[in-house]
């Protein structure tokens, strides 16, 4: 159908992509500016706590910040080692 959209000049609706990207970057930059960035420390503490119970590599825990609507969400991803 690409030739059809070519003839009728269909335009790409890219504004939603712009909005999504801005939501993420603005949330991240606000945290960075509004105080010390605590994510690395949080990650270190989480590694320490979880290591007490499960043997994991420090890289197996990922901490990130996401924005969903009006909420900022801290996302923690822990990959447990494969069971033998």
């Amino acid at each position: 159908m690409s030739w059809l959209s070519h003839i009728f000049g269909e335009k790409k609706a890219t504004a939603s992509v712009a909005k999504e990207r801005l939501q993420l970057i603005i949330a991240r930059e606000r945290v960075g500016l509004s105080g010390p960035d605590f994510l690395p420390d949080l990650q270190k503490d989480l590694v320490a706590v979880i290591s007490k119970y499960v043997k994991i590599n420090p890289e197996d825990i990922k901490v990130g910040l996401e924005k969903q609507g009006n909420f900022e969400v801290i996302e923690v991803n822990i990959v447990l080692p494969e069971m033998r």
Partner: peptide, 14 residues
């Protein structure tokens, strides 16, 4: 309107 540009409500929300 055609989704090519952020709307003013998008900007205000951000």
């Amino acid at each position: 309107h055609e989704g090519e540009m952020l709307t003013y409500t998008d900007i205000q929300e951000l």
